[in-house]
Amino acid sequence: MLEAIAFYVLASVAVLSAFAVVSARNPVHSVLFLILTFFNAAGLFVLLGAEFLAMLLVVVYVGAVAVLFLFVVMMLDVDFVELKQGFLSYMPLGGLVGVVLLGEMLLVTSAVRTSGAFSDRPTALPEGVTNAERIGRVLYTDYLFLFQLAGLVLFVAMIGAIVLTLRKRDGIKRQDVSKQVGRTRKQGVELKDVRPGQGLG
């Protein structure tokens, strides 16, 4: 009973806020609704008993990724009236994607309804084994190489992003911390003997 109420509340808020992400006029509001969607998805994970995944979703997506989204969207000066102009011209393509997704979802649900899921579907956790432990066991044994590969891909992407934005410019002042710290009094201070009435000229 309580679970059903929780599910319907979380699910409906998730769907409504997902709709608000695309329909909100203000881009910052869009991102805030996106965060609400993530949050409700995390709640759904908790209902499924996957509290570790829920926390990861909050930490990674809400705590880091969405902050960067918000960061960028706040600083961009987007003219939304102009952007909304060609909204309808994307309709055929968007509609096509939507129909394909709907078809796939129907296919999956009907396949599971009629012939059941695959036989090695996850069973309930044995007593005393936590979520995190279970995921860790699978991730670092069966899927070790894929896991490391994913990490490598992210690493390369990060280096790529840095390389793309790094540019060397001449003639600008740069700070070198070791130089600043290693500076002695002799290099930093120069004593001048100023005669009265003459100045340093």
Binding site: I35, E51, F52, M55, L56, V58, V59, V62, G63, A64, V67, L70, T130, N131, A132
Partner: peptide, 18 residues
């Protein structure tokens, strides 16, 4: 007394930035 207590703490404190 959550099993993922420390992750919950981490998640909540990472939301503080909002």
């Amino acid at each position: 007394n959550l099993n993922v207590g420390i992750l919950y703490l981490f998640a909540i404190s990472s939301l503080g930035v909002y």
